[in-house]
Amino acid sequence: MTAALTRADVAPVASAKRRRRAPGWLAVVPLLVFTAIAFGLPAFAILDGAFTAKDQVTGATSYTGGNLTTSLQGPYLTALIGSVKLSAISAALGALLGLPLAQAVVSSRSRALREAVLTASGVLANFGGVPLAFAFVATLGNAGVLTVHLGLTDKGWDLYSFWGLVLVYLYFLIPLMVLTITPALDGLRVQWREAALNNGATGVQYWRHVALPVLAPSLLGGLVLLFGSAFAAYATAAAMVGSAVPLVTLQIADALSGNVLVGQENVALALSLDMVLVAGLVMAVYLPLQRRSARWLDA
Rank of each mutant, 00 (worst) to 15 (best):
A133E: 05
Q56E: 02
A27V: 06
G242S: 03
S15R: 14
G129Q: 13
L167T: 13
A268K: 10
S272L: 12
L159Q: 06
A195G: 15
S272H: 06
R292C: 02
W157K: 04
R114V: 01
L86V: 02
T119M: 11
R208V: 04
V204F: 15
A11M: 11
L41G: 02
A45W: 09
I252W: 04
A120Q: 15
L281H: 01
G221H: 04
Q73G: 07
D55I: 04
L212Y: 08
G221M: 04
K85H: 07
A201I: 06
A92Y: 01
A244M: 07
L261N: 11
G65V: 04
L41Q: 06
Q290V: 09
A135K: 13
T249L: 00
A50M: 07
R189E: 04
L170S: 02
A233E: 13
G200F: 08
G221L: 05
W157F: 07
L256Q: 13
Q191S: 13
S107F: 11
D55N: 15
S229E: 05
E115Y: 08
A143R: 07
L5S: 04
I37G: 03
L188H: 03
P100G: 08
M177A: 15
N259M: 12
A45M: 08
L113E: 00
D298G: 14
D48E: 15
P12Q: 06
T58W: 06
A102C: 07
S218H: 12
P131A: 13
A95I: 01
A201Q: 10
N199L: 15
E265M: 10
G65E: 10
D154T: 01
M283N: 01
S121T: 01
N259L: 11
L176T: 07
P213I: 12
F134Q: 12
G221P: 03
I89E: 06
L5D: 02
N67V: 13
L220S: 03
L212W: 15
G128H: 09
A238I: 00
G94D: 04
V130M: 05
T58S: 12
S83N: 00
V282L: 09
L118Q: 13
T78D: 12
R18I: 01
S15F: 10
L173Y: 06
V117R: 05
W192Y: 06
V123R: 08
L93I: 13
L77K: 08
D158P: 01
S62G: 13
V84F: 08
G156H: 04
F231S: 00
L97E: 01
G98E: 08
V57N: 11
G129M: 08
L113C: 03
L223M: 02
G263D: 00
S15M: 15
G66F: 05
L140T: 01
